[in-house]
Design a protein around this nucleic acid. Structure first.
Lengths: 108, 108
DNA sequence: CAAATTCATCGTTCATCGGCGATAAACGAT
DNA sequence: ATCGTTTATCGCCGATGAACGATGAATTTG
């Protein structure tokens, strides 16, 4: 979807950004990976590979999706890369959903 | 993903169910359709088609996804089908997200 | 009854996703 | 310098998603 650029707010962008975050969480493996990251706070790819029964390349892909959605931060630390959950973005998502719901429930 | 069956709770199911709802909202058109439904409260397929620049079959498909995710209710009223936003399910989703976020933020 | 309207579904085309193995890059250790 | 480890990326594939036009069923209107 390529949302790396800031993208000045055109009408659809709000929905697009939100959709991208939903898409990042639309796979059970990624939800579980996120929970796992939350417990460890910071961990490398291998930790996740060991925890779940998935190939290393698959896990790396899932992590990349989470990073691109901004839900996980990525810091390439020499040998072991550090993936860390982005709690601000996550609570921001929660707020976005709450806003969406409230707008959907208040109008009428 | 076929989650029509109740699916007794196996370990992954919580994430799977949540993932399905996220998937339903992982397309900007569906988010916008949902907002539109929230304004009109109840409307037919044609209304949505007229509002957005999408083919009728495409809109019908999007609506079907939203219905299957439980976010929209469907009532075939003779000629004009009635689609209505499911505010309970929506606030339930909001709660699920909040729970996910809090578990991710409280641990550690 | 005939024509028009509304809608869901089918079939098709194209793009994207999910998974894997293989490979390359970066680094630490020997 | 070489080897083992860790990780990202590439290429491939089957499956799924997204969009459309066409078709048919149900229903309203002429």
């Amino acid at each position: 979807m390529n949302l790396t650029a800031p993208n000045l707010a055109r009408p659809f962008d709000a929905s697009r950004l939100l959709a991208q975050r939903f898409a990042a969480l639309s796979h059970p493996a990624r939800i579980d990976i996120l929970k796992h990251l939350a417990r460890l706070d910071a961990c490398c790819c291998g930790d996740v590979v060991q925890k779940f029964d998935l190939a290393q390349s698959t896990v790396s892909q899932h992590l990349k999706v989470l990073v691109e959605a901004g839900l996980v931060s990525f810091e390439p630390d020499r040998r072991r890369s550090r993936y860390r959950i982005n709690r601000e973005a996550l609570s921001g998502l929660s707020e976005s959903v709450a806003t969406l719901v409230s707008t959907c429930c208040s109008s009428r």
